[in-house]
Design a protein around this nucleic acid. Structure first.
Length: 787
RNA sequence: GGGCGGUUAGCUCAGUGGUAGAGCAUUGCAUUCACAUUGCAAGGGUCAUAGGUUCAAAUCCUAUACCGCCCACCA
């Protein structure tokens, strides 16, 4: 590469002869760079070129025989179609666009596949608020009508969002855009469920589920948060024993008392029955032994309420045969539900229908009146589970739901199970852990691998049933006579067990992450030809080979906050469904926070709107501000000031170009280029810089690459090189024409090379300049120039 | 309770074995000559603390302190 500078170059080789054709107006006005005049125009130019679509990319001229260049693919994490773009999206789009543009310039068959997420529960909540504002109640709107309303709502948002993505300069292939509720995605998601059911990886079970009584839906383990809280710990006399609890209102649902089998105080009572006075009844409770009981906590005796406490439920499961069934004394609205167990006596009706906290207060009073409260520990602090969205306490509830088996190996539970010929001997969890441990999937930064393993180690089965309308319907049908469940796409004519024709569909929908967990292979049209159901073959045939070409994809770039929700599930479901990893690298970016590292929120008033910033400073400035100094996995301190700094940088590029072009245009080169020793040194240093930046991008250190090119362009190229070469260009001080041309050559070479390297970071201004550079190849865009 | 990080200039953070770095901020000077959305220059850090390994430690090891985050079914 360096050798070419040693030999003389003719003017035709450096392309300055076309300078007079340059539209001089652009450069001669001394105005600052105005992104508004270029960005929209440039994006249209890109879209018109068709190069966002890998099928249209020119095949490398240097290797014309290369008919199948190496693919590079990123599946865009689909933004939720329920609002507008925020800085997190802007960061995600910038990082991915940098990788995509870089690889495209390197000649890869580059696909960035955009999408939008229906975002089940999240969108349901957003829409609920709209419904509320209109004075309606979502629980009173028929499901189908509500679904249609939300559909229209998301479609509108989707279009707005797509345009916002364009404004950031994202070079994604819009012709392949997918929505998580596209028909083929829905059908394929259901296919996966059906297949997993056959393979014994999905089962229905009645167990305690995290339930939010405000939102009226169950959750997975990930959708609850824990908060430390101070609550009185009540010591309640239970016949001969005393039990400690923070939830006296659950005493009505008690079915036993558990003690530690080694606890000498109670060893004689194990297996015996006691009678406890719970105001409205005298409960007969068996004393059982369970090693999970901590003898040092409270009195060492635990009341067991299997229907309303997860621990208690597990103890009940182990002792099913010895003690009675759970009693559900709190209903789905979080209110006391006693009459059905204890009759409608006055004392019972006193509590009936009261909210949990109201009931607790009253019950404590009544227990105290009877002298049944031994003591109250007011200093007790404990963790309680809350709904991640509304922060109301989770009320565990006994429910029949669909679960994904995470830690147990699959087993054929249907003749059509495929596990025998597909080599699935491991659990979903173990498969995923294996590919990360073996380095098939690499995390950036690496420390997230440890976090991933830790989470995987403790993972439990995944509840995927949601009691909302906005989502993908579960393909499961229940016989209304015998209760038998059938997992098939279409409604069965009759129950396969009892023959009854009274069949009804499960009214629940999937956890949205169950479908997004399949996003990489579904968007690429996995299993298009070999569908379990022919009806699902409705994907546009022109992208029929995408799965073969682009899967496994190269990079999954997303926020670390959805590592478990999304990344882990994509790995598991991808491996299960396709037998291959869904991506090779996981790049996890941090949260964008304000200048003081505070979370941005509407209530704090510190939210920065990316579109507003683009209006003010341009997309390039915003992109650069998001990248420089932003290390993977670490939250970013962000401010408008920072964007201003890179707006200034954009102008610097603009002005420097103006200077160079002004000194080149309308002047013909006189002959050969004779570079001085210092010219050669500069070009050599520039080659070194290129190598360094390439290496930094390859190793995902975009923050370093961006800073490097910024620093070089401004403080080396502008401040030193241009300044030092000024005298060689001026007529008064110029030594000779040859020396002038050498200076011109060096400046233009470095300018062009810099534009290429800046392009992935600041695509608009660099493309605009490139388009107006003297002597450029007609119609050739910087976007596809060789890196 | 389990786990993962961080502690470097006023601020935000790079730097992971070889004489302390960037951006912003601060201070001084310059300015019809591409650019004031500018240039030149300056000040500023015993790299949390204590031990250890090494010819050599901000960097590797151990401990301590403080800060942050994630996970979690002690009633």
């Amino acid at each position: 590469m360096l050798r070419q500078f040693d030999k003389p170059l003719h003017q035709t080789q450096i392309g300055i002869e076309g300078a007079k054709n340059n539209k001089s107006a652009l450069w001669c006005e001394g105005k600052p760079y105005n992104p508004k005049e270029t960005e929209e125009k440039i994006y249209r130019l890109w879209e018109k070129s068709g190069y966002f679509n890998p099928d249209n990319l020119p095949v490398s001229k240097s290797k014309p025989h290369t008919l199948h260049p190496k693919p590079f693919c990123i599946i865009m994490p689909p933004p939720n179609a329920n609002g507008s773009l925020h800085l997190g999206h802007a960061l995600m789009l910038t990082l991915e666009d940098i990788m995509i543009r870089y690889k495209r310039m390197q000649g890869f068959k580059t696909l960035w596949l955009p999408g939008a997420d229906h975002a089940g529960f999240e969108t349901q909540i957003v829409y609920d608020k709209i419904v509320e504002k209109e004075g309606r109640n979502r629980f009173e709107i028929p499901a189908e009508k509500l679904f249609k309303e939300i559909w229209n709502f998301t479609q509108k948002n989707k279009v707005a969002m797509e345009n916002q993505i364009r404004r950031l300069g994202a070079s994604c292939d819009w012709s392949r855009e997918k929505f998580t509720l596209d028909k083929d995605i829905v059908l394929k998601t259901q296919d996966t469920f059906i297949q997993m059911y056959k393979d014994g990886l999905i089962y229905r079970d009645n167990r305690l589920v995290h339930w939010c009584s405000k939102h009226q839906t169950g959750f997975s383990d990930l959708e609850i948060i824990h908060e430390e809280k101070s609550d009185p710990l009540y010591y309640i006399k239970y016949g001969p024993l005393t039990v400690a609890t923070v939830r006296p209102e659950t005493i009505f649902g008690d079915v036993a008392v558990a003690v530690n089998p080694k606890d000498k105080r109670y060893i004689n009572l194990i297996g015996k029955e006691i009678e406890a006075d719970v105001i409205i009844a005298k409960l007969k409770l068996k004393i059982i032994a369970d090693s999970s009981v901590d003898p040092d906590f409270g009195t060492g005796a635990v009341k067991i309420t299997p229907a309303h406490d997860i621990n208690d439920f597990e103890i009940w499961q182990k002792n099913k045969d010895k003690i009675e069934k759970p009693k559900e004394v709190i209903n789905k609205y979080g209110k006391m539900d006693l009459v059905r167990y204890f009759g409608d006596g006055e004392d019972v009706k006193k509590y009936e229908g009261l909210k949990v906290l109201e009931a607790r207060k009253l019950i404590v009073e009544d227990l105290e009146k009877r002298g049944l409260i031994e003591k109250i520990d007011a200093t007790y602090r404990h963790n309680i589970a809350l709904c991640y969205k509304c922060k109301n306490p989770i009320e565990p509830r006994l429910m029949s739901q669909w679960f994904v088996r995470m830690t147990a190996a699959p087993h054929a539970q249907d003749q059509k199970s495929k596990i025998k010929n597909q080599n699935f001997s491991m659990s979903l969890r173990d498969m995923a852990v294996k590919v990360v441990k073996s380095g098939k999937i690499k995390f950036i930064p690496k420390r997230f691998e440890k976090i991933f393993f830790h989470w995987m180690k403790n993972i439990r089965d995944w509840n995927i049933s949601r009691q909302i309308v906005w989502g993908i319907k579960i393909p499961a049908w229940q016989c209304q006579d015998c209760g038998y469940w059938m997992v098939v796409r279409n409604k069965p004519a009759k129950c396969v067990k009892c023959g009854s024709k009274k069949i009804e569909r499960d009214s629940d929908v999937f956890d949205t992450w169950f479908s997004s967990g399949q996003w990489p292979f579904l968007t690429l049209g996995f299993n298009k030809t070999k569908s379990e159901n022919p009806k699902s073959e409705i994907r546009n045939s022109k992208h029929g080979n995408d799965f073969k070409t682009f899967y496994p994809t190269d990079v999954m770039e997303t926020g670390w906050d959805i590592l478990f929700f999304w990344v882990a599930r994509m790995i598991m479901l991808g491996l299960y469904r396709t037998g291959k990893i869904p991506f090779k690298y996981v790049y996890l970016h941090g949260l964008v926070r304000d200048a003081y590292k505070q979370k941005m929120s509407k209530s704090k008033g510190n939210v920065i709107n990316p579109i507003e910033m683009i209006e003010k400073y341009g997309a390039d400035a915003l992109r650069m501000a998001l990248i420089v100094g932003n290390t993977p996995g670490t939250d970013l301190a962000f401010s408008e000031e920072k964007i201003k700094g890179y707006r200034n940088f954009a102008n610097k590029i603009w002005q420097a170009t103006r200077f160079i072009v002004m000194n080149i245009k309308d002047i013909k080169l006189v002959g050969q280029i004779k570079l001085t020793a210092s010219d050669k040194k500069l070009l050599k240093e520039f080659e070194m810089l290129k190598k360094k930046i390439t290496k930094q991008i390859e190793s995902f250190n975009f923050y370093l690459a961006a800073e490097e090119i910024y620093h070089y362009f401004w403080h080396v190229f502008c401040d030193k090189i241009i300044e030092e070469n000024k005298s060689r260009l001026k007529e008064e001080t110029m030594k000779n024409m040859e020396d002038r041309d050498a200076a011109r050559y060096v400046l233009l070479e470095i300018l062009k090379g810099s534009l290429k390297m800046i392009h992935p970071f600041m695509p608009f201004i660099t493309e605009e300049i490139w388009q107006n550079l003297p002597g450029k190849n007609k119609n050739k865009m910087l976007m596809i120039e060789k890196w």
